[in-house]
Design a protein around this nucleic acid. Structure first.
Length: 161
DNA sequence: GCCAACGTTGGC
DNA sequence: GCCAACGTTGGC
């Protein structure tokens, strides 16, 4: 089983939307490297960190799980979609998506700034300068540390500190 | 195949 | 809104 980080803009689709819907097809990825990750490496049951970008406080906000492996993204040949790509068609799909199921929503999101303060996450791709990939591999150790940090922060919050 | 110009991402 | 860092495009 692999671990991933998937970015999303909460103004478009955030962890609250994922929780409400239970699962969602992750459409709109238009970067070849991210597409290849989804197409070649994402497997059923893989775990996902959900990350909010382009928002006041960019943060990891919860977790999900891959519940359907890569299949063509129909928004790529929908002229009315903001994700439309004239080079993609039903017979020649250029872009793929996966389905992600909601798993958890952190009581206290872990902001980018907080993540940078965790020594064990020094090597995390997300924290590297210039890293813009919307789909990133995460090591099992990093994934575990993130969960621990989220629990720790939620615990502090719960005790009023 | 090079590379300049342009577009996008995304934190700040 | 700025701008650094990338990715893509297209002329040659």
């Amino acid at each position: 089983m692999r671990h991933w980080l998937m970015k999303t803009e909460p103004s478009v689709f955030g962890i609250d939307d994922l929780q409400r819907k239970g699962r969602e097809h992750w459409d709109g990825v238009r970067n070849y490297q991210s597409r290849n990750s989804m197409r070649d490496d994402m497997k059923l049951g893989d775990r996902v960190l959900v990350y909010h970008s382009s928002t006041d406080v960019p943060a990891i906000v919860g977790t999900g799980r891959i519940v359907r492996e890569a299949y063509p993204d129909p928004s790529s040949w929908d002229p009315d979609s903001e994700y439309f790509d004239p080079k993609s068609g039903p017979d020649t799909p250029r872009w793929v998506m996966v389905d992600v199921a909601f798993e958890s929503r952190f009581a206290a999101p872990l902001s980018l700034a907080e993540l940078r303060e965790v020594p064990a996450l020094n090597g995390m791709l997300l924290l590297k300068k210039g890293m813009r990939l919307s789909i990133q591999p995460v090591t099992p150790a990093e994934f575990e540390v993130v969960l621990q940090q989220a629990e720790r922060k939620a615990g502090r919050k719960g005790k009023g500190g």
